[in-house]
Simulated assay, not measured.
Amino acid sequence: MTGVPASAAGGSSSARRTGPRGASGAAQEPAGRTTSGGAVERDAGERRGATEGGAGARGGKIAAAAVNQASVWNVANLLTMLRLLLVPAFVALMLGNGGYDPAWRSFAWAAFAIAMITDLFDGHLARTYNLVTDFGKIADPIADKAIMGAALICLSALGDLPWWVTAVILGRELGITVLRFVVIRYGVIPASRGGKLKTLIQGIAVGMYVLALTGPLATLRFWVMAAAVVLTVATGLDYVKQAIVLRRRGIAERRAALKETEV
């Protein structure tokens, strides 16, 4: 007979049942099983890591939001709040006992001086120690203009300062504030050295008028206020010039960007 040897048949059947063997004769697992299992485990680990990472990121954002909310009560903002509270106190002291009592005027000058000093420190602290907040951005300029406006209006109401001086200074401050908002979409007008000098001279001049000065000091305060008015007008015109240049530059950049997108 021409049949197949039993040993050969058995070998073939065994090979089919057990699969390929290695050099040691032990049966090997299919290559795909181990690789696939490892990949599944790695994928599961990556998914767990991603989930934990996402939770950590969300936790970090929540913590950051909490820090930002708490930062509203920082020292810079507290100084700004103090300056706002000093405005009604200053008016009450300035107009106390008819508005011409030297003692009451001295107390009013002290309140005004504290407000001016805190104005020098709160912005510096906010920028130096990263304490800038949305509240500070809004409240700080309001506090500055409130104390200065209150002093000028009180002085003019008492007849110590011509109304046109008050109108020029307050009109300039209000106009520049509006101008900043108008051109803010094109950029920010930075505070100039002239503007800072103007604020300093204004504070000194108004402080001298708040005090009941006589003689040479009364004459000196007139010239200090004149310098403040000149700086007020000059810096105001400079800000208008900067705003015009900033607006033209912004419009030109937008037109150039539109041309690039069309091409």
Rank of each mutant, 00 (worst) to 15 (best):
V4G: 02
P5F: 13
G11E: 15
G11H: 13
A15S: 11
P20G: 08
A23V: 12
G25Y: 02
E29C: 10
P30I: 01
G32Q: 11
G32S: 13
S36Y: 03
S36R: 10
G38D: 13
A39I: 09
V40W: 02
D43I: 09
D43F: 06
D43C: 02
R48C: 04
R48M: 06
T51P: 05
E52N: 03
G53N: 11
A55T: 12
A64P: 01
A66W: 08
Q69N: 13
A70Q: 13
W73A: 12
L78E: 07
L79M: 14
L82C: 03
L84I: 10
L85P: 05
L85H: 00
L86I: 04
P88T: 01
F90T: 02
N97S: 11
P102Q: 09
A110F: 06
F112G: 03
L120C: 13
D122K: 00
H124E: 11
A126R: 05
A126P: 07
A126S: 06
V132D: 00
D134Q: 00
I138R: 11
I142Y: 06
D144F: 05
I147G: 05
M148I: 15
A150S: 14
I153Q: 09
S156H: 06
L161V: 12
W163M: 14
A167N: 02
A167V: 11
V168K: 04
G171C: 07
L174V: 15
L174T: 11
T177C: 00
L179C: 09
L179W: 07
R185Y: 05
R185S: 15
R185N: 14
G187Q: 04
P190M: 07
S192Y: 00
S192P: 01
S192G: 03
G195L: 05
I204L: 10
I204V: 14
I204D: 02
V206P: 05
V206H: 02
G207E: 08
G207N: 10
M208Y: 05
L211E: 04
A212Q: 15
P216F: 12
L217Y: 15
L217D: 09
L217A: 14
T219Q: 14
F222D: 15
F222Y: 11
W223V: 12
W223H: 09
A227T: 07
V229F: 03
V230H: 08
T232S: 14
A234D: 00
T235R: 00
T235A: 10
K241H: 15
Q242C: 03
A243S: 15
I244V: 15
L246E: 04
L246T: 05
L246K: 03
R248Y: 06
R248F: 03
R249A: 15
I251W: 08
I251L: 14
I251T: 14
I251S: 10
A252P: 09
E253K: 08
E262T: 05
